[in-house]
Structures are given as structure tokens and as C-alpha cells.
């Protein structure tokens, strides 16, 4: 579906290559009387990292939360418009939100490991979705997920210790391992590095780049360097509206909209 209608934001460079994994059309979000998102149209490509940037309160996290219906948990939040995942409307009544969230995983701003062992943290998702039956199968999933999150070597001797005892960066990678353990198709990351130090941040960014092979990733970030480093496409939000979306390189070198230009050059935001 080409993005050409007149209210659409500035489109920089190519459109999403191939069919869009997630596609949002005319998405409005209201918190009570306040409108947090205004008619957002955005496609997210398969096996790409899409970065959502913009000043605080611009609606980028709100948009992210629409994609796995976490907004359902907020009292008074209302979403209109359509969001499809593989052409299926995720706000359809027939769709089970539990299954949606198994397909669209989420990593949060602050690492939030459960007060359980490292092993049980990772095995949590597979257990509730019945992805494995025998202990050996669980071991395999846990080990595989920790390995893909680049954490296995650091914790392999202490899988029984509580996940809350790890360092901040390790906790965040544990949360990523926890998310990929249920083999989602899309992983949403809400400022995953904002609570981490630069070294841990570098590790997580490296990890995001590796995960791109198997997952579609949407990441909200306040750091434009981070968006430039990890993403292929970037969407710039401002005051609840999607201002510009396009190739990351294009957005950062040659933005079309003067608001984007102002933001990435640090003149406001």
C-alpha cells in the first residue's frame, strides 16, 4: 500500500520494502479528553529496526504501546483507527490480546525482571504459553534465549540466582531474553537503554542489531545517536503527530520537514 494520501507525513526515501509487518492507519489515542496521538499512519517493515524519535510527550511511547495493546491497561485510554499485524486487525474483537502479546513482545524502559531466578524469568513466557513440555525442552529454550541475548556466558553458572541480583545492563538483556523466549515476531522496545550506562548501552545496541535477523523491532529512543546507530527507518513524532518517516540515513542527513531538521540538529526538543 503506497503512502500517498495528502494528509500523510513527509516521506523520505524509500517506502517499506516488501509487505509491511505492522501497519497503522489513522490511529488516534485519547487519554480521557486529551488526544495523545492524531491520525498516525505508519508502516513497519519486516526484519527491520524502526526507531521512533521525538521530544518528550510527543506520543511515540503511546504509539508503541498501541502495537501490543498495552494501552488497554491504562484506565481511560481509547484507541481508534486500525493497526494490522500481517494484515490482521489487532483491535478486532475476535483477536485474543494474550496471543497478540505473544507475537508482539515488549522490553521496557526500566529493566523489570521478575523476583524469580534467572532461569524462571526466561522460562516464564514459554511456561504460560505451553511452548515446551519436558525439562530438556525448557533448558533448550532458556539457554537459546540467553545466548541470543548475549547473556548466557555471564550467567550460565548462576541460573538459579534471582534475576534482580544482576547489574542494570544484565537485567535489561535478561528482559530481552525473556521477550525472545516466546519467539515473538515483533519486539517493541521502550527506551531500553535510558537506565543503562554507556557500556551496557553499547551491548544492548549490538544485540538489537543482531536480533534484526529474526525479529521485527520497533524502538523508542531519546538518543538520536542511538536511532542513527541501530535503526534502518526512523519516524519523527511531534505533539502527537507523525511528522516525518523514512530511511534513517535520509532523516538524519537530509530531513524534509523543518521540525525534523530542528529536532535532529538540537534546536528544540
Amino acid at each position: 500500500m503506497p503512502l500517498t494520501s495528502e494528509f500523510l507525513p513527509y516521506q523520505s526515501g524509500r517506502n517499506v520494502a516488501g509487505p509491511a509487518k505492522v501497519s497503522a492507519r489513522g490511529v488516534n489515542v485519547f487519554y480521557g479528553d486529551k488526544q495523545a496521538l492524531k491520525a498516525v499512519d505508519l508502516d513497519i517493515g519486516t526484519n527491520e529496526v524502526t526507531a521512533l524519535i521525538g521530544p518528550s510527550g510527543c506520543g511515540k511511547s503511546t504509539f508503541l504501546r498501541c502495537l501490543n495493546r498495552m494501552n488497554d491497561l491504562i484506565e481511560g485510554a481509547r484507541v481508534t483507527g486500525t493497526i494490522t499485524l500481517d494484515r490482521q486487525d489487532i483491535y478486532d474483537r475476535a483477536l485474543d490480546v494474550v496471543q497478540l502479546r505473544a507475537r508482539v513482545g515488549m522490553v521496557f524502559q526500566k529493566p523489570n525482571p521478575f523476583p524469580k531466578s534467572i532461569y524462571d524469568n526466561v522460562a516464564y513466557g514459554p511456561r504460560i504459553h505451553g511452548l515446551a513440555q519436558t525439562a530438556a525442552e525448557f533448558d533448550e529454550i532458556v539457554e537459546g534465549s540467553l545466548q541470543r541475548a548475549g547473556l548466557f556466558d555471564e550467567v550460565k553458572d548462576r541460573l538459579d540466582e534471582p534475576g534482580t541480583g544482576l547489574s542494570g545492563g544484565q537485567q535489561q538483556r535478561l528482559c530481552i531474553a525473556r521477550a525472545i523466549a516466546v519467539s515473538p515476531e515483533v519486539i517493541l522496545m521502550d527506551e531500553p537503554c535510558s537506565a543503562l550506562d554507556p557500556i551496557a548501552t553499547a551491548k544492548v545496541e549490538e544485540l538489537i542489531d543482531e536480533l534484526r535477523e529474526n525479529f521485527t523491532i520497533v524502538i523508542v529512543t531519546h538518543s538520536m545517536q542511538q536511532a542513527a546507530r541501530v535503526s534502518q527507518r526512523t519516524a519523527f513524532f511531534h505533539l502527537g503527530e507523525l511528522v516525518e518517516v523514512g530511511d534513517t540515513e535520509q532523516i538524519f542527513t537530509n530531513p524534509r520537514h523543518k521540525l525534523t531538521q530542528g529536532y535532529i540538529t538540537g534546536r528544540f526538543g
Binding site: 501490543n68 498495552m70 491497561l73 494474550v98 496471543q99 497478540l100 502479546r101 505473544a102 513482545g105 515488549m106 521496557f108 523489570n112 525482571p113 521478575f114 516464564y124 513466557g125 504460560i128 504459553h129 528482559c175 525473556r178 521477550a179 516466546v182
Partner: peptide
């Protein structure tokens, strides 16, 4: 939220 985000009821 972490638990809901993993698809837990």
C-alpha cells in the same frame, strides 16, 4: 506490565 507484555493473563 512485564508479565502482560509477555502475553500472560
Amino acid at each position: 506490565h512485564g508479565s502482560y507484555g509477555l502475553g500472560a493473563t
